[in-house]
Nucleic acid binder design. Structure first.
Lengths: 143, 143, 143, 143
DNA sequence: GTGGTCTAGACCACC
DNA sequence: GTGGTCTAGACCACT
């Protein structure tokens, strides 16, 4: 079951953080079609945010077709964002896990690591993508 | 000169995006102590956001000690966030550039790449993340 | 509940006056950790300044760690600046109250009194003024 | 010769700080009618602010009748704000000097001292504060 | 011409 | 109904 972590204090709205983390889990295959998201009640218990805020996030994802809210039952994943290459045992994944470990061992913080990756993405050429830097989980992209 | 790209439409506040992009440039060494940030007017011309929004971001960074606003002169970097290991020619950097290229070649989108890295960071364990020198008044990290 | 008095016409920015008066109340123990500041709306009603100006002051104090803004709830004190010796019934306090009464009786204005105290502070020597515990991110002092 | 100290970083405009410090010196008798203020050039050398800013302050004081700018000669005090009771050897002055010394010895910071005095002034009752002889050019008071 | 304050008002996020 | 973002624009402080 996905476990949301809300960073109050980053200026980023709580509901955006929920959507981002959910999409990330979908891309990684951590969350699969048919899986149930935690109930608003559960998220509230874990994060101390307001139930309405959770529902707002779920509603947003319903509109983008990622999940379905079934009254009385819960919220369920209806679409995958998984990519071949992101599997748990893929070479790319093993390599990045290793690289991250070395980066951290070298003293880099989480933010340093992300900055490095973002720079590499930007260097690779934006033309292959439509996204602006920091443009992760844009509403579309996929299909 | 740093060139901000604001993604209106991501729920992330424009001023937060400016701060994030500036910090990223500082971490990468793209921006160094003494460097001048673009004037509010220049940012406005480039991004079509309001001057006050730019100033809000600059003021925030001044309060965290990253930059100094000098009336009549401009805004200047006063602190480095650069980390050894992030240099342009460091092994870590060459490796990540290479890895990103292969990930993209394999069909992964920008968001997939970032999801993969985030997953690796989370797996590595967040508890290692405090106390790195120069880590003063950090507030956000992920979001 | 603290009651801000804004002196439009002193060149001092309204938001600075709010911060100063809040800090003063914290030092005197008039305001304590957990106390709620007036809402922006209440301040507006009482002082005829713009809500954004109040929020600017509150945001500034949040960044220095004095208060916490909780959306939908209000703004709350999170740190004390109280000093032993400033209590309502302390000898120092009784003495200064008495001295002020005599100064006023002697015909001195408020500004004269403050000038006298400032002169005494300057004479005492400024070099003793750093490093008092709890003095974190101080920025102003005199002005 | 008065020695201005500008606190950049307090939100208070530099020219306001000059005016405040000058008035304080006039009240204390440190500056007397006929005394010459430092030239803009000298203030610039001592404080690293812009000559225009100094001139702005001097012009303001000329308009309130405190000083006179004589081209080619300098700026001179034309009016006293001295009060009986503020002299160097007055009992009030000796008492406050002593009290301040004890307050500082007790661990109070400059700001604590000023907070205490301000509280005492407020407690004494603001209603006594108008119409005192020589009270004309009031503009600020507290802030 | 730079940053800085303040106003006014629309709309959003959260409780 | 609370705080929060952003816009727009006037005016100020400083170099």
């Amino acid at each position: 079951m996905i476990d949301y972590r809300i960073d109050r204090g980053s200026g980023v709205p709580a509901y955006v953080q929920i959507v981002e983390q959910t999409e990330r889990a979908l891309r990684m295959g951590t969350l699969r079609v048919g899986d149930k998201l935690p109930t608003a009640r559960e998220v509230v218990a874990a994060t101390a945010i307001n139930p309405n805020t959770v529902l707002r996030a779920y509603r947003d994802m319903e509109q983008t077709g990622l999940v379905e809210l079934r009254r009385g039952l819960g919220t369920f994943v209806t679409r995958s964002l998984a990519r071949p290459g992101s599997e748990d045992d893929s070479p790319l994944r093993r390599e990045i896990t290793d690289w991250v470990a070395r980066a951290r061992a070298a003293g880099l913080e989480r933010a340093d690591v992300l900055a490095l990756v973002t720079a590499a993405l930007d260097a690779h050429g934006d033309e292959h993508d439509s996204g602006t830097p920091g443009d992760r989980d844009r509403k579309k992209e996929d299909a």
